[in-house]
Design a protein around this nucleic acid. Sequence first.
DNA 1: ATTTGATTTAGAATAATTCTAAACTATGTT
DNA 2: AACATAGTTTAGAATTATTCTAAATCAAAT
Lengths: 145, 145
Amino acid sequence: MNSLKQMDRGALSDALDHFGQRTTPQRETVFGVLLNQRDHPTADEVYARTKSQMPTISMATVYNCLETLVSCGLVKQVNIEREPTRYCPNLSPHAHFHCRETGRVYDVPVPSGMMQELAGVLPGEYEADSVELVFRGHLSKGKTK
Amino acid sequence: MNSLKQMDRGALSDALDHFGQRTTPQRETVFGVLLNQRDHPTADEVYARTKSQMPTISMATVYNCLETLVSCGLVKQVNIEREPTRYCPNLSPHAHFHCRETGRVYDVPVPSGMMQELAGVLPGEYEADSVELVFRGHLSKGKTK
DNA sequence: ATTTGATTTAGAATAATTCTAAACTATGTT
DNA sequence: AACATAGTTTAGAATTATTCTAAATCAAAT
């Protein structure tokens, strides 16, 4: 699989349009790479994967595309400690789990009620537009998933 | 104020001892800097503040000391997006609020029950030893605190 | 067709952090 | 007290993710 499904292509164009940005082959390809393998790749990894489909793309363009996708709300950045930024096209409310042993990052669904509750701990003067929840630890043996 | 209170000096020595590390003037001074002004300074800021009390200290030592304090559990690292790491000697359970306008980071106390609850969203195979909760947004007008 | 502005590109620049190797300090042992 | 050992500090070099720059390319609109 290496091309965007019609549905995703539509979502991409719509979102880009909405922010006055053009739909380009590079943006489509990068978005496709993210949707195809949902393992929170770094920019470097996205670059490698994209290059295999589009050998002339440059690192700068990958960064540009990722930045564009993030600013259009199609992709989220995940920062774990000081490690390279990772990218995630999962838009539903979720937390992240970072395994210290493998370095892998997993999505963990969070009931939406929980998110409400979290916002509740903020004193009145704080107005949050985003919440980030990251767990760190390890996966219990047997289940490497 | 520029020297460690007796109580804090004791806590520092105990913790360092416990991990087989020496209590040095550099570590004491850096720890004192963090306790004195609890505004989540970056390593650069810690360096500047420490240098004013101990002009011969080097940047590398500041990083070494911070790393030592973190590994002994006396200080926490706070990473917000890709910005420089900040340091925080608040050991009670709390979240962070990052103001997009000023860039400042605030501690937000979190009821301990909430932390328990958060851990509850993790499926069984995930064993977390730390939870990080970061809000981003802005302070409502009037209260710049 | 031509202008205009957006996008892509390669490579240089930046900046936080880590590494390296030498100098220094403290501690324990005889 | 002198010495060996290991831990710590230091300045500066190295690393690395990311951003910047300026030129080339592309697309849309007159």
